[in-house]
């Protein structure tokens, strides 16, 4: 579905990604693991077209999207849940979702479906996003991305700073999307949260892919983790 082939990217003169390649398949959760500064968030931003590519290609179902203007990338069907949620803080829940719906001119029933997944948001439609609790903010960030009926979903540390019940709620939604055939790329620090849900794990270091492993293998042979992550 989403293929990243040998991309170089970075911030101005600072190159972060060096020939990074990975692919994200429909109905699978691909997890990006690596230490701080390895290039996980940079990979996400490069896919979203927020950083110029120095080399390489990014294709979505065969279409080259690596050199589209940033605002065209989500219109191809990529939903992005950025690190730290990045809600439009002064807008209401309804307005945040409206922006998600506007991205691809989603029909109205999409909103109903999204609110079915997150009933707590339905009660808070008129509330400003900045007044929500951390868990509700994460739900809103997820719901906003789902409003564009994504073929590919990028989640950057969705469980950061959340209480266990919220983490579980988010996890259930992600697993449900996977079963509906969405291709999911997940960045996560907490291994336990990842291993049980992921299909494949991509280890990155210094902006390059070190290893790609089946999550099932990692569950069976935890010593592999030690080799890749030193944990």
């Amino acid at each position: 579905m989403l293929e990243v082939q040998g991309i170089d990217a970075g911030y101005g003169p600072v190159q972060v990604l060096r020939g990074l390649s990975l692919d994200v398949r429909p109905g699978e959760i691909t997890c990006l693991l690596g230490r701080n500064g390895a290039g996980k968030t940079t990979t996400m931003k490069a896919i979203m077209g927020l950083l110029p590519l120095g080399a390489g290609r990014i294709t979505l179902a065969g279409e080259d999207i690596g050199r589209l203007p940033a605002h065209e990338v989500p219109r191809r069907g990529i939903g992005y849940i950025p690190q730290g949620r990045r809600l439009f803080a002064e807008l209401t829940v309804a307005q945040n979702l409206e922006i998600g719906l506007m991205t691809r001119n989603s029909p109205r029933h999409v909103l109903t479906r999204v609110l079915d997944l997150f009933p707590r948001l339905a009660d808070r439609m008129g509330q400003r996003a900045e007044t929500l609790s951390g868990g509700e903010q994460q739900m809103l960030a997820t719901a906003r991305a789902l409003c564009l009926e994504p073929r590919v979903l990028l989640l950057d540390e969705p469980t950061e700073g959340l209480q266990p019940s919220m983490i579980e709620a988010i996890r259930q939604v992600v697993i449900r999307l996977k079963s509906e055939g969405v291709a999911i790329l997940l960045v996560e620090q907490r291994l336990d949260a990842v291993l049980s849900a992921a299909d494949r794990v991509v280890f990155i270091e210094n902006g390059q892919v070190r290893e790609t492993a089946d999550a099932a293998d990692l569950r069976a042979r935890p010593e592999l983790l030690k080799r890749y992550l030193g944990v």
Binding site: M48, E72, R75, P82, F88
Partner: peptide
Amino acid sequence: LVMRATQLDRETAQTFGIPVG
């Protein structure tokens, strides 16, 4: 709404299809 979203977070606005330019 598009103008206010751009005002609040330019980068995130782009990731929701808003042509910031």
